[in-house]
């Protein structure tokens, strides 16, 4: 079949206003296409919500609701409870989505509640590593030394002074059955993990690395390339954890130095101009080495 109508199978329709080359909306399309049509989706405020629901239009071809920035997982919890009460919980799955800010900062309390109460929901965190929709402010998932509008580099600063919050470990502390990280660089892996997660009863956490050309500063064509480099340098380890045990990890055929990833992006370019910057690069390399050791990536 050679037909434009083929694109109608996508659960996220075109015509949305996400930036050209947006990794976030790409990730969402891959997640929802993998999930099938028998789903109800909640989404927190952020680029994913704003760009797909330019009133009176909607890009969503599945039942979808937005309420607030902080409560995607609480709204999802209510929907799941209602489906259970109606005896429909086996047929209709609930997916709750949010950005890194929505997930690891403002929505943390609601998400912890969703995990703790044991709702049968797949929570997806689209990790573009800052508050993109309001102009690239840092979140607790912004990586060390990234320059953002609230952590600009300068004479006295190399950018974000804190390390990325370990969200999968926080999810794991709730003893939920399934936790995974994924990346837009590996679309088939996303599909596999979403399908698997939806087969598992209980709360699931999926964190997806989704490059933002605007906020990170790179050519729109490089979203996949950059995402791949994050994985290949060990800075974004991809793994699955089932019932507290790591059951799979993406092994790296060839480990690249962190510079290969960092030098492609404006948000890290200040690390490459001074002698002191070299020390920062060493610190970031040490973080990658630590990941490689911890997850057994090499």
């Amino acid at each position: 079949m050679f037909d434009k109508e083929m694109t109608e199978k996508n659960s996220v329709a075109p015509g949305h206003n996400a930036c050209s080359g947006c990794g976030l909306v790409l990730a969402a399309r891959l997640v929802l296409n993998a999930a099938g049509k028998d789903i109800i989706v909640t989404t927190a405020t952020g680029c994913l919500e704003v760009t797909t629901t330019n009133y009176p239009h909607s890009a969503w071809r599945v039942p979808w609701i937005h309420s607030l920035f902080e409560n995607s997982s609480a709204v999802a919890s209510g929907i799941e409870a209602a489906l259970k009460a109606q005896g429909k919980a086996d047929k209709i799955k609930v997916i709750s989505q949010g950005g890194d800010g929505a997930t690891a900062d403002i929505g943390m309390m609601c998400l912890s509640g969703m995990f703790e109460r044991g709702h049968d929901i797949l929570y997806v965190c689209y990790d573009n590593e800052a508050y993109m929709n309001t102009g690239i402010q840092r979140s607790s998932l912004t990586p060390f030394d990234a320059s953002t509008s609230t952590t600009p580099f300068g004479k006295y600063s190399f950018g974000n002074p804190t390390n990325k919050k370990d969200m999968p470990a926080i999810a794991a502390a709730h003893h939920i059955p399934y936790i995974a990280t994924a990346s837009v660089a590996y679309p088939q892996d996303i599909e596999k993990k979403v399908k698997k997660a939806l087969q598992i009863k209980g709360p699931k956490y999926l964190q997806l690395h989704a490059p933002c050309p605007l906020g990170w500063g790179f050519k729109t064509a490089y979203s996949i390339k950059i995402a791949k480099l994050a994985v290949q340098t060990g800075l974004y380890p991809l793994f699955e954890m089932e019932n507290g045990v790591i059951t799979s990890r993406k092994k790296l055929a060839r480990v690249l130095p962190v510079e290969a990833y960092l030098k492609e992006q404006t948000r890290f370019k200040h690390l490459f101009v001074s002698e002191d910057g070299k020390k920062e690069l060493e610190r970031i390399q040490a973080m990658a080495n630590e990941n490689i050791k911890k997850f057994g990536l090499a």
Binding site: H57, S58, W60
Partner: peptide, 9 residues
Amino acid sequence: GEPGSSVQN
């Protein structure tokens, strides 16, 4: 908005 109505954009 109607499902998928963003195609008007």
